[in-house]
Design a protein around this nucleic acid. Structure first.
Lengths: 135, 135
DNA sequence: CAGTATCCTCAACGATACTG
DNA sequence: CAGTATCGTTGAGGATACTG
């Protein structure tokens, strides 16, 4: 994701915000969630992921996989064959994380319409403010 | 946040990944969560937020507030006094979101140690690979 | 007080040629 | 097949002077 840990020296209740940031720093990247979901179903190979995740570049797939592996969210298994075969599998920790994320999708589902409406209203307001004459 | 909506043209189950991204695009910013938490307790003024949230710049506070207001997560109330007084309050939608985030903090709390250990192990491994001689 | 306007930096991401 | 190595782009975020 985009930001570093600013939690040091934070006081009291900010602990909550920081804990959330910990998670976000881990899965906030553009592709992390997609990879975790794919690797949660069954072991997946590099090329399979590349095809399954629309729009991801080879470089970003590699980086995402390495970071997730480093955090213990993915297991990387190399079969020393020719040509090489590598499989990625989500760990239990990652599956748990995915389950927790369901709570968030519920929230999004419930409020998607309200948010869209709020945005439209806001944009309409500010557009009106930006157009002095309005005619 | 860093990334645009790539959900268009996505198929079947990727809907889940996209719904998560919707939330992340909204709250994934470096400061959004902190602002929501502060504004969930009670109405807060601009300067109060600036002091409460360690490290935030004036510019980012403004941007974060505007985005959250646009999405209907914050209410902005202006008291036409001199000097001006502006209060920000979290909406019910935002409080609900915050409640959902608790699930994530639980996950982080449970696995913080495991993640740290995994990272250290990974870094040690790759460091060893990078140091040919090792002595 | 509550912002806006400017300028700048840097890390995330994208594209793609090359390789064990 | 499963990557790595390079180069280029973009936008999030930071610092800060100025203003109604």
């Amino acid at each position: 994701m985009s930001q570093r840990n600013t939690c040091v020296s934070d006081q009291a209740m900010h602990a909550k915000a920081c804990t959330v940031r910990e998670v976000l720093d881990r899965v906030g990247g553009k592709w992390s969630i997609g990879v975790i979901i794919e690797a949660s179903r069954a072991p997946v190979r590099f090329t399979e992921l590349e095809r399954a995740i629309t729009g991801i570049s080879r470089r970003m797939l590699t980086l995402t996989l390495r970071n997730l592996e480093r955090d213990g969210l993915l297991t990387r298994t190399v079969y020393p064959t020719v040509p090489p075969k590598v499989e990625y599998t989500a760990t239990d920790m990652a599956r748990e994380l995915y389950d927790s994320l369901v709570t968030l999708t519920d929230w999004a589902d419930r409020h998607r319409a309200a948010i869209a409406a709020s945005r439209e209203a806001y944009d309409h307001r500010t557009a009106a403010a930006g157009t002095p004459g309005d005619r």
